[in-house]
Simulated scan of single mutants.
Amino acid sequence: MLDRLLILTARYARWVPETLLRGFFLLAADVSWLLHVGGVRQLEANLAHVVGPVGRKQLRHISRRGMRSYFTYFSEALTVGARTTEQLKARIRPAGTGYPEPAKTMIESRSVPIGMGHQGNWDYAGFWAGRAVGPVTTVAERLSNEELLETFAQIRRDLGINIILTGEHGITERLADTLASPEQVVPLLADRDLSRNGVFVRAFDSWIRVAAGPAVIALDSHLPLYTVNMYRERLTGDRRHQAGTPLGYICSIDGPIDTDAFQGLPRDQAVQELSQAWVDQWSRGIREHPEDWHMLQPIFIDDLDLSRMHAVPEHISAEVELRRGKARGNRS
């Protein structure tokens, strides 16, 4: 039922007033938050790792903002086809320590690999990058509902983003080939990969398993690696009028991380250390704007069943078991 509603919303976006749809999604976010459904509980568990030992009231305040940010993303993504180019341009602006470095990289006819997480509105980021930096190619997760999958994929194609779906043959090689061409942008949502191909990195007060993709394609392409954080800002004046909405986004670009320093290492070590480097850079943005991190799934190893995970290093397992033992002792 929900999937069908999302598909119909996207299909008839031009006939749905944006303010009405945004209000509906915000109401749904508040109801979910008040009922403390599973996704909200997991979001709060994730946020607790990020913000540290804050009071329950403050954590609930952040999680409410997080749910409203998450649901607003869906209202924006489903109706992006109804927005004009001028509106979209006004809704996002670049910033960060790495900007305008990517543009300089493009002047040198080199391409830009990017590691990023589930934050803000990555469709808007792809739209901006495709016009300000270069053609964008990325990977989208394959969904069980093929019609919903095609709906979201087509939304991104209409924004000018080239979409590769998970499960397709030779994804890493295709991305490396793309980066071998001049003036290409390859951003990858990589903050969660629990498969045996994921890479363990330290994040906040724990460990997470991220996708190897950003590190692999940067190493194979001998290109510097960037990270992107996205978070909201309140719009004012002419920009708010042009955007047609009170809130926009900052696309914060950080880097570059020089991959030459990792090239002489054994392959697995190079991928792990470069992954750690981009996560260290990216996580600083999450700390500053945790409410715009849309991670409603388990990600921290402390919250996962280690017996169901593949190839967990012994030192990580031992560290987690030690913390769990201390927690049980404190409760007894």
Rank of each mutant, 00 (worst) to 15 (best):
Q119S: 15
R110F: 09
Y73C: 02
H118S: 06
A77Y: 12
R91N: 10
V54F: 07
R91G: 10
R41N: 09
T105V: 10
T97D: 12
Q42R: 14
P94K: 09
K57T: 15
A129H: 02
E44N: 13
N145E: 01
A95D: 10
A45I: 15
E101D: 12
I114N: 09
G134A: 02
R142I: 04
G66E: 09
N121Y: 08
Q42C: 06
I114T: 05
Q119W: 10
H61M: 11
H61E: 13
R131G: 00
I62S: 03
R64M: 11
T138P: 02
G115A: 04
T79A: 07
E141K: 14
L88Y: 06
R64P: 07
P135R: 05
I107M: 11
S69D: 07
V139W: 04
A140F: 14
T105E: 04
A129M: 15
V54H: 01
E101F: 10
A90N: 06
T84E: 01
E86W: 09
E146G: 00
G115P: 07
L88M: 10
W128P: 07
G117V: 07
P102R: 01
R91D: 06
F74S: 13
Y73N: 07
K57N: 13
E44M: 15
N145Y: 05
S63H: 06
H49G: 00
V40D: 08
S63L: 05
H61N: 12
T79F: 11
T97K: 00
T137C: 05
V40Q: 05
R142K: 13
E108Y: 03
L47F: 13
A45W: 05
P113I: 05
Y124T: 03
P53L: 12
A90W: 09
S75D: 12
E101S: 12
T97I: 09
E44V: 13
N46M: 03
L143W: 08
R41W: 11
I92E: 01
S144V: 12
V54K: 01
T84A: 00
V139P: 01
S109W: 03
V80R: 02
R93P: 08
H61C: 09
T84W: 02
T72S: 14
T85V: 14
S63D: 01
I92S: 05
A45C: 12
P53K: 14
R110C: 03
A132E: 06
S69H: 08
H61R: 14
L143A: 07
Y73V: 09
Y73G: 05
R93L: 13
P100F: 10
K104F: 14
A77M: 13
K57F: 15
R93Q: 10
G115F: 04
G81D: 03
G96E: 00
V139F: 04
I92Y: 03
A48Q: 13
T84K: 00
Q58F: 14
A140T: 12
I114M: 06
R83C: 08
V40N: 04
Q42Y: 05
G126H: 06
A140N: 11
E146S: 11
R83D: 05
M106N: 06
F127E: 03
R60C: 14
A90K: 03
V136Y: 06
R110S: 05
P100D: 08
Q87L: 05
T137L: 10
Y124W: 12
S144I: 14
K89H: 11
I62Q: 00
T138K: 00
Y124F: 15
F74L: 14
